[in-house]
């Protein structure tokens, strides 16, 4: 049984995966099998659904600026279409001979193929969505890198104006993503990192304020204040980098590393 790494993909494909597995088992146990019913109508419904997916898939490809999606999605669409053709062939063969063994094989290959190709397609789409979140995370990293050169209150205000909306977006999107993951360990890491980021953000801003006050008064301790600020910025960057790493993981990666 395939493992789906988001709850959305799981909810779409898990029921059909179970049905396909059952069909394979029934086929093996029944050996020569019973006469198959006329499958023309349900196969037609699948073919129409596949044509619609191909249309929507092509629109998604054309409307996306994501090069990886543009490269990977057509392959999945071709696989869905090929599997649909297998079902049409199986249906035609079964009309001639309801006991046909090769037709049953095509039926199993076709339905299994549709399941796998749809899974690949949804994964491709999902990975593209993850790349959008990662892009936002990288924007936060870019802003954090600027923290070291902020030396006036005006610059700090601008820094906050830039960072805040971006950080809010990352928080919102990573939080939603965490709820979507079927892999509990990955979800927990994201929650932990996000909590750290939320805790560190106001402390970092405070440390930047302290640094600015110290250098404005020309007082002692500027070096220590800068060190403290840099440490906090680095800690936040580390947490964001960990979020990026975990966002890219799938259950499959984890199983392989184990």
């Amino acid at each position: 049984m395939p493992v789906f790494h988001t709850k959305t993909i799981e909810s779409i494909l898990e029921p059909v995966a179970q049905q396909v597995s059952r069909l394979v088992i029934l086929h093996e146990e029944a050996e020569d099998g019973n006469a198959m019913p006329d499958l023309e109508q349900p196969v037609k419904v699948v073919s129409n659904a596949v044509q619609n997916l191909i249309k929507v898939g092509k629109e998604t490809i054309n409307g996306s600026g994501d090069e990886i999606l543009r490269q990977d999605m057509p392959t999945a669409l071709i696989r869905v279409e090929k599997s649909s053709k297998l079902l049409e062939e199986a249906s035609a063969m079964l009309k001639q001979d309801p006991y046909s063994g090769p037709a049953r094989k095509k039926l199993i290959d076709g339905s299994g193929g549709i399941l796998q190709a749809t899974s690949a397609l949804l994964l491709c789409f999902d990975e593209s969505e993850v790349r959008k979140i990662i892009q936002e995370c990288k924007r936060v990293l870019d802003y954090l890198a600027v923290a070291e050169v902020i030396e006036t209150m005006e610059e700090l205000v601008q820094f906050l104006r830039d960072l805040s909306p971006c950080l809010s977006k990352v928080t919102r999107e990573v939080s939603a993503r965490e709820k979507e993951l079927t892999h509990q360990v990955h979800a927990e890491i994201l929650v932990r990192c996000l909590e750290q980021v939320k805790t560190l953000a106001p402390i970092l801003i405070c440390s930047m304020k302290i640094y600015i006050h110290i250098i404005m008064q020309g007082g002692k301790g500027a070096e220590e204040a800068a060190e403290n600020r840099n440490y906090l910025a680095r800690r936040m960057s580390d947490e964001i980098n960990e979020i990026i790493r975990v966002l890219q993981l799938t259950s499959y990666d984890e199983d392989q590393s184990e």
Partner: peptide, 29 residues
């Protein structure tokens, strides 16, 4: 979003097809 809806429709259609095919086999077991 449209992709998800289209995938849902395919999953439901494939499920119905496989169920119909399974029903005939199940009678034998």
């Amino acid at each position: 979003e449209m992709i998800l809806e289209a995938a849902k429709t395919i999953a439901a259609a494939t499920s119905a097809l496989v169920k119909a095919a399974s029903a005939a086999q199940r009678e034998l077991i």
